[in-house]
């Protein structure tokens, strides 16, 4: 199991508490984007295409912490843009750790080694670097549209591990990947020593430069079946076994768009991390003012039909784990046997 016991306990008690209070909708991971600029322009990313004055903006730490406190989720993920370009990243992470939030800094790791050497971060069980790695050297550099990034990122990962930090990887797959190469990549990440891996199909961002390689649902199940069907025992994933089963077609899950709400420079994004249907001024306005029935696979919304991304389905998998005997049994069996 890749998630430490203390974190698993925090999540489990949080989810059970929500169920006890009969809360139908609650956040699990706050996605906090304190900036939108990045030092890469990846082919499958639709997050950074904005005018210069928007890309130059930084959220204040006070504003970010107010969002964290209002949301109340036990985990905070900091993507962007590239969070290591955020000038207040050290202060923000320190404050989140003080609040005992489990923090994932979602970085491309190009600057990770440099920032670690500068002493910006202190190892903590609450802090993980979630490094964007889309495959082995050739595939990753192709995915991020720049040669040399794989080497820089793996240097950063090794430095972080050497200094005692928690490191996970975050991999987005498109329909041009070779399953065997992905399996080799998983071996490589395990050899390097990361704590666990996260994997997800890419979302069909309307604004992404490469519109030709997004996966449909059937293709996703087929691809992940080939990658995870004969899962090696030493592979550790930093995500729910039920979500992995969903990717290979062994679980039917519905999207939980409110599970990973996004607070960004424009406010609380409606309805989810991936779709932009507008912004709410407060978390409660997001939760109360969004027509949730209009989203998710079952809604028939065309924008949701091919989506199987972890930001929408991982919260569902976690809720299912603690919400049904079957979910709990499937999770335990998968964890004990190591099979998806």
């Amino acid at each position: 199991m890749a998630v430490p016991a203390s974190q698993a306990w925090t999540v489990a008690t949080y989810v059970l508490k929500q169920r006890l209070f009969r809360r139908k909708r609650y956040p699990l991971v706050l996605m906090l984007e304190p900036l939108l600029r990045c030092n890469l322009a990846c082919a499958g990313c639709g997050k950074i295409q904005y005018p210069v004055q928007v890309l130059r903006k930084n959220m204040s730490v006070a504003q970010a912490l107010a969002a964290v406190d209002e949301c109340g989720a036990p985990m905070v993920s900091i993507p962007g843009g590239e969070p290591l370009l955020y000038p207040h990243i050290s202060e923000l992470v320190d404050e989140l750790v003080k609040r005992k939030k489990y923090v994932y800094v979602c970085t491309n790791a190009v600057l990770l080694k440099q920032k670690l050497e500068a002493g910006l971060f202190t190892p903590s069980k609450y802090l993980s670097f979630s490094v964007h790695m889309d495959g082995l050297r050739e595939e990753h550099d192709e995915s991020v549209c720049r040669d040399g990034v794989y080497d820089a990122a793996t240097d950063g990962i090794r430095e972080a591990l050497r200094r005692g930090f928690r490191v996970t990887t975050n991999t987005t797959l498109f329909d041009n990947v070779e399953p065997l190469r992905v399996r080799e990549f998983f071996d490589e990440m395990m050899d390097i020593g990361v704590e666990g891996m996260m994997v997800s199909p890419g979302y069909s961002y309307e604004k992404a430069p490469d519109q030709t390689h997004f996966l449909g649902r059937e293709k996703t199940r087929e691809l992940f079946g080939k990658i995870l069907g004969n899962k090696k025992k030493h592979w550790r994933f930093n995500q729910s076994p039920l979500f992995l089963q969903f990717l290979v077609g062994k679980q039917e899950l519905e999207c939980t768009p409110w599970g990973n709400p996004l607070y960004t420079l424009f406010g609380w994004q409606k309805p989810c991390y991936l779709l932009q249907d507008g912004y709410a001024a407060s978390f409660s306005e997001l939760m109360m003012g969004t027509d949730w029935d209009a989203y998710g696979h079952a809604s028939g919304n065309p924008a949701c039909q091919d989506c199987m991304v972890h930001s929408g389905y991982e919260p569902t998998a976690v809720a299912e784990t603690f919400g049904s005997w079957r979910g709990l049994k499937d999770t335990v069996v998968s964890t004990v046997t190591g099979k998806v």
Partner: peptide
């Protein structure tokens, strides 16, 4: 001149929100 990042088309008080070309706002 600016970046229009939000709109609320419903109701009688439909509005847009934008950041100006210096990034000030909303």
């Amino acid at each position: 001149v600016g970046y229009l990042f939000n709109r609320n088309a419903s109701g009688s008080r439909a509005f847009v929100q934008y950041l100006d070309d210096k990034g000030d706002g909303p």
